[in-house]
Design a protein around this nucleic acid. Structure first.
Lengths: 211, 211
DNA sequence: ATCTCTATTTATGTATACACAAAGGCATGG
DNA sequence: CCATGCCTTTGTGTATACATAAATAGAGAT
């Protein structure tokens, strides 16, 4: 594996998981010493992160971990809505009903996954990710999938802005279940509408509970 | 200006304008000699182009100018539809009516711009670009604008796949005029529908005339 | 005390040298 | 004549040295 890939993967994960918080300075020398590689692969990694929107050039010199402001959360969700609603529509047209009815069943029971034992909600988020993967596969559109992938990077970061709220997560699971059901029923309009509803609820919840 | 930026701008323009055709090998040494800079800024430029989708890694070693296949044109237009329909909706909600009614007037008369004297159709495409800019400004959404910017890079390349057809261009101008009108009227549903119609016509024209 | 100009320092931008891996050619054996 | 293995060659991946621009700190003047 290339050193630049390792550096990228490390930094990517560190930013996504808030080990590197927004605004942190990403100095090339410091990173090269910390990760044990030279500046060249570090620069390559930073270029990738910049293209992804996880790092951004500071005024004048240097790079910082990109800021996440609540001010622009509505903009992020507008793009999300455009992409996910269309994706849900296309999945409803093209997907295998069995796959999504199976996901529907799992999501309908996902409330049980949200327990005190799993404070990171890993099981729930894994199930939500499974739905995303199934939608991507059903849509079978490389360009749309790429746009969604770029978007999800930011969504994962944003998740931490909201307080953990089991009740909201159980609602979200039900909303996901509704989306999966509409797709399995081959109903594009309902799939899109259910997605719109889910995103609106998510955004409002985030904005109301964010620190 | 940084050497890496110049190298990027040069390569970007060369690929967009088909001076570098899809599949062309992008060797670092060759490019560094041709552009008169060392390999380091060349690598930086290639990384940017890769992120943009204009260059892609070849199997094993090296990079090539990314391929454009008609097979995936429908996928590209699905993404385009998702983004532009939503953008048109939001512009209809938020835009200044005067700006778009002015664009409507210009586009309604754009047929006159398509003459024998301008084989590149620069005037027409400039007007279409003006509409894009106005929509972006009205939408005022950084994330959506960025996604559209990434997309348009590919659309410019794709344009050359179709034969030049003055009749189709005049139709396209009318379709653009319809979009501008709906936006100036503050009617999101019609703006979105007009965009859908326009994109469908564009795609079908491309697929029917492509070499 | 504050402002400004300068000098120093530090980090980035670029060039280049070296290491290594993959592609291609050549020779040898079947 | 074809296949296989080795060797050469070429180009990428990484490290590092050097150049340059920006930030900072300090000294001097107002």
């Amino acid at each position: 594996m290339r050193a630049s890939d390792r550096a990228y993967a490390t930094l990517h994960s560190d930013i996504i998981n808030w080990r590197l918080t927004p605004g942190t300075v990403l100095g090339e020398v410091e990173l090269s010493e910390r990760l044990g590689v030279s500046r060249t692969p570090i620069r390559e990694a930073l270029a990738k992160l910049t293209a992804e929107g996880l790092a951004e050039p500071q005024s004048g010199r240097g790079m910082v971990v990109s800021k996440i402001s609540l001010d622009h959360l509505d903009e992020l969700f507008e793009l999300r809505s455009a992409l996910e609603c269309r994706a849900a529509e296309l999945a409803a047209k093209r997907g295998e009903p069995e796959i999504f009815s199976a996901l529907h069943r799992q999501l309908a029971n996902a409330g049980e996954l949200i327990t005190e034992e799993d404070p990171t909600r890993a099981d729930y988020y894994q199930l939500a990710a499974d739905l995303d993967v199934a939608v991507d596969a059903a849509v079978a559109n490389h360009y749309l999938a790429q746009a969604l992938k770029n978007l999800r990077v930011h969504l994962v970061r944003v998740r931490r802005l909201g307080k953990d709220n089991p009740a909201r997560l159980r609602d979200a699971a039900r909303e996901h279940a509704a989306i999966a059901l509409a797709i399995s029923n081959g109903n594009p309009a309902v799939a899109s509408a259910a997605t719109t509803v889910h995103l609106d609820n998510s955004l409002r919840h985030l904005l109301s509970t964010a620190a």
